[in-house]
Simulated assay, not measured.
Amino acid sequence: MEALVAATRNNVEMLGLSGQVGVIPPGAQADLVIWNGNPLEDPELFSDPTDAVLVIQAGQIVKDLR
């Protein structure tokens, strides 16, 4: 979990983009990936794109296998 936070939220804060990226409140533009499993328990999920069941890029759904 700490590695994911370091790769996302911490970088957003360092770039001065807090509240603009890395958030998904209503009205925000989001990049989001929903995995077929828990990547905190199985980091190998990141290595197989077929394990991504929902991908939202720039606020638009680009993959939906739900």
Rank of each mutant, 00 (worst) to 15 (best):
E2H: 08
I34N: 00
Q57L: 14
P49E: 12
L32M: 11
V55Q: 15
D51S: 14
L15Q: 10
I61P: 01
D42G: 04
D31A: 04
K63A: 10
A30Y: 07
P49Y: 15
G37R: 06
N11M: 04
A6H: 09
A7T: 02
V12H: 00
L54E: 10
N36G: 00
P25C: 01
N38Q: 09
G59K: 08
G19M: 02
A3F: 04
L65Y: 10
Q20W: 05
V33E: 02
E41P: 00
M14Y: 08
D48W: 06
E41F: 11
P26I: 04
V55G: 15
A28M: 02
V33R: 11
D42W: 10
S18Q: 09
N38I: 06
G22Y: 03
L40W: 05
T50E: 13
D64L: 14
R66F: 13
F46G: 04
G22F: 01
R66Y: 15
L45V: 14
A3Q: 06
K63R: 12
E44A: 13
D31M: 02
A58T: 03
E13M: 08
G16V: 06
R9V: 06
A30M: 01
V53G: 03
D48N: 15
L4Y: 13
G16D: 03
V62C: 03
V33F: 02
V12T: 02
E44Y: 14
E41Q: 15
L15K: 06
L15S: 05
I34P: 00
P39S: 05
